[in-house]
């Protein structure tokens, strides 16, 4: 079965990112397909490579990046929601002449169309809200 997930909460502030990650791991382990994870609202912070939790704590961004590498996932940070909140890749940092970029590997910045497309092609679209 084809799943897509949307994540609206900030990691380390709200459990929903952890729940979405555990859910994603479980569905992939069971052999289902994960078409896309779309990070929107405060969920965009899941993609920050600069998050630096203490070493004895889980690093949600790193977990997503690893999962993306293992299963070739499409992790999309909404570009409009992301730019507002300081989530930039190299291209956007150049475009807006910002001093740094912070989008972790395995994540891409893209538009809301990706969320709608996910709703169109997935058997189950599941919202992890905060």
């Amino acid at each position: 079965m084809i799943f897509s997930l949307t994540v609206y909460g900030a990691p380390f502030s709200n459990q929903c990112s952890d729940t979405a990650y555990q859910f994603a791991s479980s569905l992939l382990k069971q052999g289902h397909s994960l078409h896309r994870v779309f990070f929107y609202h405060d969920g965009v912070y899941n993609g920050s490579v600069l998050a630096t939790p203490p070493q004895d704590e889980r690093n949600i961004q790193a977990s997503w990046s690893q999962l993306a590498q293992q299963y070739d996932l499409d992790l999309v940070v909404c570009v409009a929601a992301g730019l507002r909140r300081g989530m930039l890749d190299e291209t956007e940092a150049d475009r807006y002449e910002q001093p740094a970029h912070n989008l972790a590997s395995g994540f891409t910045l893209s538009g809301l169309g990706q969320m709608v497309e996910a709703a169109m092609v997935s058997d189950r679209m599941i919202t992890f809200g905060a």
């Binding site: 079965m1 859910f23 569905l27 382990k29 069971q30 289902h32 189950r124």
Partner: peptide, 10 residues
Amino acid sequence: DYDGFVALCT
């Protein structure tokens, strides 16, 4: 558990 949660979604 999470596996059960996924199964329910299907």
